[in-house]
């Protein structure tokens, strides 16, 4: 039922299939193929094609945007439905499990599209780093979507905030394409930093390293946002939204 309810919405279909493809394809189609140099967190200096760097980070961006929107929409849409389902005899654990299964299936579908499409377009033959980074970015951005939904559950404003935040984080701030800002030490506190480092380390370095620590940092980030989201819900700071 939850899955059918999601599929009925054109915006869901657009953001889970068309949007990731458009973002990845556009980055490939637009970006010029020139060499660029950037430094990884591990200290390695990488020289790679700007086109390849932009495609892999484009795939991460596509996944980040989709996950954030899903985390947000599922939290907003099912807040009311959960109450009604509870009245007809479903337990909270059953409702939450089915929402989780739907979220997992949609994100699995979208990440398969993003990973395979970017794998086709880039010269980087790394799949391991790409899959792990996509998974981590999904976790982090679903939790951010959840947090925003708990603070400001307005569909228009919330999805716009998330789209713009994800775009700025993954395309401009933690992305080596934004050279000057990427070199700042404080960017590692942004949600997309560690998954992006994994995809860059495994995609472009001959001797990739540090994956475990980067996964741990990403998971810590995810847990902090989830805890914050839970706390926000618990203390009830949700802003009123006109229906």
């Amino acid at each position: 039922m939850i899955f059918r309810n999601l599929l009925r919405q054109k915006s869901i279909i657009f953001s889970s299939t068309i949007l990731p493809i458009v973002i990845i394809w556009a980055t490939w189609w637009i970006t010029v193929e020139v060499p660029m140099t950037f430094e990884l967190y591990s200290g390695k200096l990488i020289s790679a094609s700007m086109l390849d760097v932009h495609i892999v980070t484009g795939a991460i961006t596509a996944m980040g945007i989709t996950s954030a929107i899903f985390g947000f929409l599922i939290t907003v849409e099912f807040a009311d439905i959960s109450k009604r389902l509870k009245q007809v005899g479903y337990s909270y654990s059953e409702i939450n499990s089915s929402i989780f299964v739907v979220l997992f299936l949609v994100l699995l579908f979208t990440s398969s599209i993003s990973v395979s499409f970017s794998y086709l377009l880039t010269k980087s033959d790394d799949l391991q780093g790409m899959i792990i980074a996509t998974l981590l970015i999904s976790f982090i951005y679903v939790s951010i979507g959840n947090l925003v939904a708990n603070i400001y559950p307005d569909v228009t404003a919330g999805s716009l905030i998330l789209l713009i935040f994800a775009f700025m984080d993954l395309m401009m701030i933690v992305n080596p394409m934004g050279e000057a800002i990427y070199e700042q030490s404080w960017v590692k506190f942004f949600p997309g930093y560690w998954p992006t480092q994994i995809v860059l380390e495994y995609g472009f370095s001959d001797t990739p390293s540090g994956m475990i620590s980067q996964i741990i940092y990403s998971l810590i980030y995810f847990l902090i946002i989830m805890a914050l989201s839970f706390f926000v819900k618990k203390i009830g700071v949700t802003m009123e939204v006109k229906k």
């Binding site: 919405q9 054109k10 915006s11 657009f14 953001s15 949007l19 458009v22 556009a26 980055t27 637009i30 970006t31 010029v32 193929e33 700007m50 932009h54 569909v155 228009t156 999805s159 716009l160 789209l163 713009i164 775009f167 394409m177």
Partner: peptide
């Protein structure tokens, strides 16, 4: 929501990417 996605996709694609002489081929 769908309208916003379309606006964002087309506006960013045009002004931030396609018209960007720093990396647009």
């Amino acid at each position: 929501a769908l309208g916003l996605y379309l606006i964002l996709t087309i506006s960013i694609l045009d002004t931030a990417f396609l018209e960007n002489p720093l990396f647009s081929r």
